[in-house]
Computed example of a mutant assay.
Amino acid sequence: MARYHLLLELRDSHERLEYKINLTTAEENNPHLFFTHEAREQLRSQFQNQSQRRISDQNLNYILNSWIKDIKQGYRDTTISMTLPLLSGANIEDLSETGNHNFPPLFTPDLSGIEPQGGALPSLIFS
């Protein structure tokens, strides 16, 4: 079995995330067969847990395609640098507020008790 190492560098925070796998000879020759749906999701969840960054399907495909390409070429170490959004703010566009969205009832304010004080309004208006 051969050991392969993926290093993901986050550009904005300079974090370095690592992921290692062991491949058999058959998997080295066809690395795309190793990365089943379960293996892909395991990689995604490990990176997301380590970094608190969101890895979209597009980012995951880019990471895995680059790594598979390097494995096919015989490279044991692969380094990928990218920027990923924070996990906490990644789904902000999907936020839905379930509170009361009704406007309060409108009323006419009582202005009878309001008078100018200390020359706030010129005397010509009231003559």
Rank of each mutant, 00 (worst) to 15 (best):
L106E: 02
E27A: 08
N61K: 06
T25K: 13
N91P: 00
D70G: 03
R76A: 15
P109S: 01
E27F: 05
E18Q: 14
N100Y: 10
L7G: 12
K20R: 15
P105W: 08
P104N: 10
F107A: 08
K69E: 14
L87E: 05
Q58G: 13
H37A: 06
A26C: 11
S13M: 13
L86Q: 11
F126L: 04
P122G: 00
T25H: 13
E93V: 01
E93C: 03
F126V: 01
S45Y: 02
G74N: 11
K20N: 11
T78H: 09
S56Q: 07
Q52G: 11
Y75K: 08
N30A: 10
S66I: 09
L124N: 03
L10M: 01
I68K: 11
P104M: 03
F107I: 15
R44Y: 04
L6E: 03
N22E: 12
G89M: 06
D77A: 10
N100F: 07
E97I: 15
A39C: 12
L84K: 00
G89N: 00
N91M: 06
N61I: 04
D110A: 06
F107K: 15
P116K: 05
I21S: 02
S123V: 07
R16Q: 12
I68V: 11
T79R: 00
F47V: 09
S51P: 03
K72V: 10
D70T: 15
R40A: 03
R76V: 03
L86G: 02
P116G: 09
N65L: 07
F126D: 12
Y4G: 14
G118A: 09
Q48L: 15
G118T: 01
Q73M: 11
L124W: 14
D77F: 07
F103S: 10
S13A: 13
L23G: 15
A2D: 09
N30H: 04
R3M: 12
R11D: 15
H101G: 04
S13V: 11
L17V: 11
L33D: 14
Y62D: 03
Y62I: 02
H5D: 08
L124M: 09
P116R: 02
